[in-house]
Every structure is written in C-alpha cells, then in structure tokens.
Simulated scan of single mutants.
Amino acid sequence: MSSRTAASRPRLGFLGTGWIGRHRLQALQQDGTAEVALLCDSDPASLDAAAALAPGARTVPDPADLPAGLALDGLVIATPSALHAAQARAALEAGLAVFCQKPLARSASETRAVIEAARRADRRLGVDLCYRHTAAARAVARQVRSGALGEVYAIDLVFHNAYGPDKAWFRDPALSGGGCLIDLGTHLVDLALWVMDFPAADEASARLYAQGRRLGPAPDEVEDHALAQFTLAPGTSVRLACSWNLSAGRDAVIEAHFHGTRGSARLANVDGSFYDFVAERCHGTRAERLAEPPDDWGGRAAVRWARAVAAGGRFDDEAWQALRVAELLDQLYGRHGRP
C-alpha cells in the first residue's frame, strides 16, 4: 500500500467488510466526503455485500494479496481485534490515515505502538468509539462540563447484552484481548473519561465471571460478566457492569448515570434498543428530557475522521485518548505493563 496526497475526496480502502464495516461504508457514502476505492475481506458473502454498496471499488479477497502502489489516502479497519494493531501500523507506516474499530489493540502497549506510528507518520488516526457521538451523550456531557450538576462524585455505567458474539475469535483471549469488558466496557470507560475530560484514574479493580464462575488472574477463557470500579481525579467513584448473554429481559441495557451535588444526568437506551437513546437531567423525582430519538449517530465518528483526512489528515493528539482507555482496561484486567 502507498499513499497519495489527500484531495477533496480522499480515496479509502476497507479492510474487513462485515456488518460494522459495511455500516461505516454506507455512512461515508451518504456523506459524500470520500471515495470508496478498495474492499478487502476473506468472507465472499461480506465482500459481495460491500461491493454492492460501492460498485466502483476494487475487491481483494485476501489481505496478503493487496497489491503495492495503491493510490489510497486512508484505510478503514474492521477486522478481528488481534489484527488491529499490526494492520493499523502497516497502513500508517505506508503513509495512510487509519480509522479502526475499537479496541484499537488488545492492550495498552499495543495501543501505544499504533499511536506512536501515527505520530511518526503524521497521519490521522481515528478509533470508532461511537457512543460518545450520540446526541444523548453530548447532552449529558454539556450538563457535566457546564457545572450544571455541581461536583460529579459518582458515575454508574451499564452495558448488558442479551446476546453474545457470534464469531469464535471473541472467545479466545489471545485473539480478543478479553471478553465483555474489552468488548462492551471499552465504550463505557471511554464515555466516563470523555465526559469528564480525561482525568487521571486509579484504584481500579474488577471481578470477572464466566458462566457464573469467578475467573482468576490471567485466565485462559474470556469473561461474560464483569463488575468493575475505579476512581477519577479528584475523587469521582465509578462503578461499571457489563455482560454477554445476560437474562436482561430485553435485547440490551445501556446506561450511564452521572451524579452531582446539584443533580444528575443520565443516558439510557430505549426499550432494549442498541441504537435509540434518551438523555435526561434529573432533579429529585423529576426528569427533564434533553435528547431523544431519532438520532442517526452510528457513522459520525467515521465521517468526522474522513473529513479530517480530506482536510489533510495530519496527526491529532486526540488519538492519545485511546491509550487512556486501554491503560484503564489493563488495570481492570490486572495486566499492568504486560503486552
């Protein structure tokens, strides 16, 4: 792969065209910011489905067969987690901007290496931490950052998924980096840090379970239920719960509650939806609606990245936020400093 100078419509490649890759492809197509020039996936059905959305794009069934000299400006990566770091570094070192599905890597050390590669190449690196781009999350953030809630002293975060991943690699810790905590908890940790403007975090601990059994350190299986807690400077207590295959009575329970000395603000999904969210400001027994559906938020992070690539695509320090999330997850998993 090789890069070229970004024009008004950057040429993008897609590495991984499963459901999430195709969704981001559609968002970029609808925005019109970029041209989809290359599609790559080893699954023929996924590749055919993506080709139907971008009929002018070149298709390649195997990443190993990607030809040299491709005139691309950026690469969208939506492959299994174990591949993210190496694929992102290779693209960045070839001079391409990168937009990668979360997690950017399986650990903080891998994450740091990718961000350093982006900094050295001076190329834009985006990570699909998409929930911060919902209207509901933005409304909650405004309440917190404006001081309307007073001092935020406690945060409760929940993401229970009544289903589990349908790909085998999710349940191999060597390939996934962990279970529901890195899969779902990544979004929750990012929401807490982003809303609070990335304060220092400490006192992090977690209890991990697999089918009701508590897991010990460095387990050879992934967790399907996690209960965690940590503290954000100067003293905000955070509790986090997430799970796969929980008997939740609905498809999903997704919530983030920020409790302050002058009131609370919360984000919550509607009727078990993975896509519809409301935000409310709470005063005692009363709740004031701040945001509600419809809100087409899923592709906003990708579109934002593509527009930055169109504007030149240089490195942005915001990429380091992904490292802050990864470092906290490493603490929760008890793998301090380990690759």
Rank of each mutant, 00 (worst) to 15 (best):
D224M: 12
D183V: 08
A50C: 12
Y163W: 14
S237M: 08
G185F: 07
T17Y: 01
A97E: 01
D31H: 15
V76T: 07
A287C: 13
A108N: 05
V309C: 00
A82I: 10
G263L: 10
L129Q: 06
A206P: 05
G337N: 08
V195Y: 07
P67V: 14
V140Y: 09
D122A: 00
P44M: 09
R281H: 14
R338G: 04
D166R: 15
A108L: 09
A268S: 14
A319N: 08
A6Q: 05
L290G: 03
L53Y: 02
P61F: 03
L28K: 05
A49V: 11
G216S: 10
D316R: 13
G95M: 11
P63Q: 09
E116L: 14
D251G: 12
L53H: 03
W297R: 01
L208Y: 09
F258T: 04
D183K: 13
L267E: 02
R338C: 02
G177D: 02
F198V: 05
W297G: 07
V189R: 02
V238H: 02
G298N: 11
L227I: 13
A105R: 06
A228T: 03
H187R: 03
A90N: 11
P293F: 06
M196E: 01
G150E: 08
F315Y: 05
T79A: 11
A192G: 00
A322N: 09
S46Q: 12
P103V: 07
V270C: 01
P219S: 03
R124P: 04
I155R: 02
D172S: 09
A85K: 06
A34T: 04
R9W: 04
R262T: 04
A210W: 13
Q26T: 15
T33F: 01
R262P: 02
A141E: 12
S8H: 14
D296R: 15
S2A: 15
G150D: 02
D296T: 11
R106D: 01
R123Q: 07
D224N: 15
D62I: 11
R106E: 12
L208G: 01
R106W: 08
S2C: 13
G179M: 05
D197P: 04
E203H: 15
A7H: 11
A162P: 00
R11W: 01
D156R: 06
K102E: 14
G272V: 08
A256G: 05
A51V: 09
L193S: 06
R266I: 06
C130L: 15
A310M: 07
V76S: 02
H283N: 03
P294R: 10
A49I: 07
A204K: 10
T111C: 08
T17G: 01
R338A: 13
A45F: 14
T236E: 05
S264R: 12
L104S: 10
N161W: 15
T261G: 06
L329E: 08
D197G: 06
Q26R: 15
A154K: 13
H225M: 14
Q29N: 14
V325A: 03
D122F: 06
I115K: 11
V303P: 05
R266C: 07
Q26H: 04
P294F: 08
A148V: 07
G212V: 04
R22S: 10
K102H: 08
G178Y: 04
G334K: 09
S264M: 00
L75E: 10
